[in-house]
């Protein structure tokens, strides 16, 4: 493991910011820590970077214990939320900074700065000051500065937060490509689940100072281990019912079959909105119910419907659309709703 975090605890007075965090990041892996604000993800990042010393636990980098080492001895490149570019230094001076601190020869510095600027497509911008660049360009300078010295680990602290959507999407892919090409072990922090799904090899979802679940994006999306993960990652319908004899009765849909080995008792079922079918499409589905359309939202390639079930409660359905398709249902209309039982996921810790 390139980075190992073992049993990290950090308290601020009465508040427990990190309550025993374990995490491993493999060499060349892109791991995202996803969580709402206040979940402890920034404190974890600072602990890895060396700006925080944990009350308990250890941080290992390439097998070496760096828990108490100052930031400058960790060889970690970090991109800050607001980039933290040195405003009084030119782009080239910013990028050269970590190399100068490592007392590299002048020619090597010049060569590697040029190389890093080429990597982030900012050749010819070396003489500018940070304030003369756009937000996206500043972001790339920060990235170049963080990788130019060949760090063991790259830390990205919500680096796309300040950018507009289009630029953000372009940069997300660019950073991902760069990371793959250079095989940079990367720890990425965000509260944006979509961004996490796009970029990560694995995602660790954090809540209240603990890691809820770690896994590849697909796994987390399809098989969330907790109600929090199910709710936080993507849109979800969480249906509470009672399991008995490999089937569960759900208000509005009646009895639905459950996978083998499911013990009897209360159960939480996750049904993603895109698994639902409505109106005519619902007819072929094994599990069916009925509901009234409360709201429809047109999203271009899809539409979102909020439906009030006859048996009480609401579900969200996402229907994919082709340009020629007619609107799937009108508000106020009562329609059939259906899904396939294999699209149901039992949330283990509901």
């Amino acid at each position: 493991m390139e980075l190992s975090v073992k049993g990290i605890v950090r308290r601020f007075g009465q508040v427990v910011a990190l309550g025993g965090v374990d995490l491993d990041v493999a060499e060349g892996e892109f791991l995202t820590i996803l969580g709402p604000s206040g979940s402890g993800k920034t404190t974890l990042l600072k602990t890895v970077a060396g700006f925080e010393i944990p009350d308990e636990g250890r941080v290992l980098l390439g097998g070496e214990d760096v828990t108490l080492a100052p930031p400058r001895r960790r060889d970690v490149g970090m991109v800050f939320q607001n980039y933290a570019l040195f405003p009084h230094m030119s782009v080239a001076q910013n990028v050269a900074f970590p190399l100068e601190m490592r007392r590299r020869p002048r020619e090597e510095i010049a060569r590697r700065v040029a190389e890093a600027l080429r990597l982030v497509e900012l050749e010819g911008y070396g003489e500018r000051l940070p304030r003369q660049l756009s937000g996206g360009q500043q972001q790339r300078v920060a990235l170049a500065r963080a990788i130019v010295f060949g760090p063991r680990l790259l830390l990205l602290d919500e680096p796309f937060g300040a950018l507009d959507r289009k630029l953000r999407e372009a940069l997300q892919l660019e950073v991902r490509r760069l990371q793959r090409r250079l095989r940079l072990t990367t720890l990425f922090i965000t509260h944006d689940q979509e961004e996490a799904l796009i970029m990560s090899d694995r995602i660790a979802v954090m809540d209240k100072g603990r890691i809820e679940q770690v896994g590849p994006p697909g796994d987390l999306y399809a098989r969330p281990a907790t109600r929090f993960v199910a709710d936080f990652l993507g849109e979800s319908n969480l249906l509470d019912g009672a399991a008995r004899n490999r089937s569960a009765s759900i208000p509005g849909f009646g009895a639905v079959p459950l996978p083998a080995g499911q013990p009897d008792g209360p159960v939480t079922l996750l049904l993603r909105p895109e698994a639902l079918r409505v109106a005519a499409d619902a007819a072929a589905m094994p599990c069916r119910g009925q509901g009234r359309v409360v709201e429809t939202v047109f999203l271009g390639q899809s539409a979102k419907l909020r439906l009030a079930l006859d048996g009480g409660g609401e579900v969200l359905a996402r229907l994919s659309l082709r340009p020629s398709d007619p609107p799937p249902a009108r508000e106020g209309e009562t329609v059939a709703i259906g899904f396939a039982p294999e699209d149901l996921h039992v949330v283990p810790r509901g």
Partner: peptide
Amino acid sequence: IDPDLSRAAEGLGAP
């Protein structure tokens, strides 16, 4: 001065 600036400098290897 943004406190992140001196953090950044230290993180990049400056005593």
